[in-house]
């Protein structure tokens, strides 16, 4: 269970949000520059909130800020880069020590097969296309089975068939492993396909929370209505 209440000052507005989420998939939706990515960044520990709290399964992540490596976290962005000095296999297995690799052999094989990584396994990152890189980055983020997965526009720039494929895989694994997923995407169609529930954010404030159906029938603001028209 993720519980958070955060205040973070940005140059143009103040992010002030409070929500909790269990083992499910929750989308963060809103216009560009409304503070969604900053919110994920604060949850990941890359930015420090001004005040508030972040608790994960009773463990305090803030305050004080818990070091990044002690958070059970998978974080994936559109800018994700692979470690250039390591092969695809070494990138994917990066977070696992030798003993865990042996224990998780079946899981690693599932990752390999679902994300079609077998043929890429020994390649260097520079030999991969954009889509292949994103698949490897997803595998790397989920390989150690984190409790909380944060996706910040991870499908931007990918073609539709690959996005559909990745969404199906993430949904399958979320149901299998039970992690909490928070996703941000500018495309409501993509976000709706991934997350059954959504939080709408405008200028750093939560303006509505519910299912996509609820948002579509009773949007809390004209801006939100405009964005939802795309669905």
């Amino acid at each position: 269970m993720l519980e958070c209440s955060l205040i973070k000052t940005r140059p143009d507005f103040v992010i002030n949000v409070e929500f909790s989420v269990g083992s499910s998939r929750l989308g963060l939706f809103g216009p560009s520059g409304s503070g969604k990515s900053t919110l994920l960044s604060c949850l990941a520990g890359l930015e420090i909130p001004d005040s508030g709290y972040i608790r994960w399964n009773g463990q305090s992540w803030f305050p004080p800020p818990l070091p990044l490596h002690r958070r059970s976290l998978g974080y994936l962005t559109q800018r994700e880069r692979l470690f250039p000095h390591l092969s695809v296999a070494e990138n994917v297995l990066f977070a696992l020590n030798a003993a865990t690799r042996r224990r998780q052999e079946a899981w690693v094989q599932e990752i390999q097969s679902q994300l079609r990584l077998k043929a890429l396994w020994d390649r260097a990152p520079r030999e991969l296309s954009g889509g292949q890189t994103r698949r490897v980055a997803l595998a790397r983020a989920l390989c150690r089975k984190p409790g909380l997965v944060l996706l910040d526009e991870p499908f931007a720039g990918l073609d539709r068939p690959l996005v559909r494929e990745l969404i199906a895989i993430i949904k399958l694994w979320q149901e299998e492993l039970g992690f909490t997923l928070l996703a941000v995407d500018h495309d409501p169609v993509v976000l709706e396909a991934l997350c059954p529930d959504v939080i709408a954010i405008e200028k750093g404030q939560v303006i509505q929370r519910g299912s996509w159906q609820e948002l579509a029938t009773r949007p809390a603001s004209p801006t939100l209505r405009g964005l939802l028209d795309k669905i």
Binding site: L46, L68, H69, L73, G74, F83, A95
Partner: peptide, 8 residues
Amino acid sequence: QSGALLGL
């Protein structure tokens, strides 16, 4: 940063 987020 990615390394730290992966638990290092």
